[in-house]
Write a protein that binds this DNA or RNA. Structure first.
Length: 486
RNA sequence: GAGCCGUUAGCUCAGUAGGUAGAGCAACUGCCUUUUAAGCAGUGGGCCGCAGGUUCGAAUCCUGCACGGCUCACCA
């Protein structure tokens, strides 16, 4: 498999060992970071740098080398950024100079010590007095100018992507920051972060096909969770009145720019709150993130501007359909299903499904700025509280941004008798041919029978949120190792 | 799962009247003590994704397969 360059590096590694030098030494402690030195001393003049100490030390991966015979320049990258180093024969000595030229390749890790100075071109540079081989890289780095482009290699060998494409690293740092902001926001509001099981006996909390697995010792079929919902609400029953979980969720469905079989969801539950309270809190949370990440509420996603200025638009499904299609669409089932058929919707005679999907096909992609859609039909919302005025709909909303569903929330159904009936109705839908329905979870009903205080809950798709704030066109750009065929 | 597109050196890419491969970077050998996509001279490096087929001859045309991308369907 190995090529010429690999063999050359392999030979250098052996030669280093023969010389008594450890090519994988781990006894160098860098005291400084590239970025810190540049922000601290980058503006000094050449003269000012002369007064600085001579014991700066850094470690990192060699990203560029420019050899001038008796001296050479190189850049190393550490976790903070890049800084230039300078090796001069007169300074490090003839043998060390020669060894650096001979043994240090692009991609290797080195530790360097020395004195800072400004080059003629004004770049802060470490004039190396001592250096140390830290790790030999046996493969060459991707091309320095174009970086790594091959998407397959980028995903399969993400480390190469991170090394050679700094903007990719930024995306993931932003992802981490967003999750930290969410935690901070909720912690401040007295929410408790918890972990609930990923292995479930019943795929509950959503309507989706699960991954199936098996517990050998118990000889028990299990599924990977499709939502943490029912467990989090059991915790509300137990008195954890404000609770959230950020975690991986698994759905056995197609892969696309918007879907990965495992994705990250944040779910929260707040006792004594309604779905309307959660609309307000969602606005606050996402605007908070926008301020922190983007410094503004208006930013570009692709070539479209998104304006997050509050208050966000709220759209009633029935009202919107009535305005667009006339009164009969809701009063006359024949009219409704005819329209659904004409849009190619596979409604299976389920009213709620027809209504929701007609709405989505007509409006979804137009919902660029954040929009709360509410008024979801009862039969497709089996865990949501019935609306007090209109028993056909639930107190539920979905948040759309850039035509994508970002969040789903509702006032929770806490009436155990109603909940049981709803589960039973799901079985009817299944009989109509709907494959993805909520499964009966008697244990959850029992929990409700012990009393869950009035509660509102919400799930937010973290990956999609990160896509939005990092201007990423595909979910694969915000997941380190997206699902690919092995 | 369907349609369209892609797969050539370590990387980024060229390469069709079908005549067994090129550039830049990287590498190797030299020269060069303030460069930054350093420069100059020279050298090496390729089952052209895999397997068949057509042909005197295939990176190039045809078929199948693998992997990837985009669009569509379902969803968050």
């Amino acid at each position: 498999m190995e090529n010429e360059q690999f063999e050359q590096r392999r030979a250098k590694l052996d030669e280093l060992r023969d010389l008594g030098l450890n090519p994988f030494a781990n006894d160098f402690k860098p005291a400084h970071l590239a970025k810190d030195l540049i922000s601290k001393y980058g503006e000094l003049s050449q003269e000012d740098t002369e007064g600085l100490a001579d014991d700066f030390s850094l470690a990192g991966r060699v990203m560029a080398i420019r050899d001038f015979g008796k001296s050479l320049f190189f850049h190393i990258a550490d976790r903070s950024g890049r800084i230039q180093g300078y090796i001069k024969k007169d300074v490090v000595g003839e043998d060390e100079h020669k060894a650096f030229k001979k043994f240090v390749d692009l991609g290797d890790f080195v530790g360097i010590k020395g004195k800072l100075f400004k080059t003629r071109t004004g770049e802060l540079t470490l004039n190396v007095t001592e250096y140390k081989f830290l790790t030999k890289s046996l493969h060459p780095l991707p091309e320095k100018w174009h970086g790594l482009k091959d998407v397959e290699v980028r995903y399969r060998q993400r480390y190469l992507d991170l090394v050679s494409n700094p903007e990719i690293k930024e995306i993931f740092l932003t992802r981490s920051k967003i999750i930290k902001l969410i935690r901070g926001f909720l912690d401040e509001r007295d929410f408790v972060e918890v972990e609930t099981p990923i292995l479930h006996p019943i795929a509950g909390g959503a309507a989706a096909r699960p991954f199936e697995t098996h517990h050998n010792a118990l000889d028990l079929d299990l599924v990977l969770r499709i939502a943490p919902e029912l467990y989090l609400k059991r915790l509300v029953v137990g008195g954890i009145e404000r609770v959230y979980e950020i975690g991986r969720t698994f759905r056995n469905e197609g892969v696309s720019t918007q879907h990965n079989p495992e994705f990250t969801m944040m779910e929260l539950y707040q006792a004594y709150a309604t779905y309307e309270d959660l609309m307000d809190m969602t606005e606050e949370l996402i605007c908070h993130i926008s301020h922190e990440i983007k410094n503004t509420l208006k930013f570009e996603y692709g070539d479209v501007e998104i304006d997050m200025t509050r208050p966000w638009k709220r759209m009633d499904i029935s009202e919107s359909l009535r305005e667009e299609l006339g009164e009969k669409i809701l009063s006359d089932d024949k009219e409704l299903f005819k329209k659904a058929d004409s849009l190619g919707i596979d409604h299976k005679g389920i009213r709620g499904k027809a209504i929701t999907e007609i709405f989505e096909s007509l409006f979804e992609e137009k919902l660029i700025n954040p929009t709360f859609v509410y008024g979801f039909p009862l039969d497709i919302s089996p865990l949501a509280r019935k609306n007090e005025e209109n028993p056909e709909i639930t107190d539920r909303f979905e948040l759309y941004i850039f035509g994508r569903e970002i969040a789903n929330a509702f006032s929770e159904l806490n009436d155990p008798v109603d909940q049981k009936e709803r589960f039973e109705n799901q079985i009817e839908l299944k009989n109509k041919g709907e494959m993805e329905v909520h499964e009966m979870d008697q244990d959850y009903v029992t929990a409700l029978e012990h009393g869950m205080p009035p509660t509102a809950g919400e799930g937010i798709g973290i990956d999609r949120l990160v896509m939005l704030f990092t201007n990423s066109p595909s979910i694969r750009e915000v997941i380190f190792f997206p699902h690919l065929r092995p």
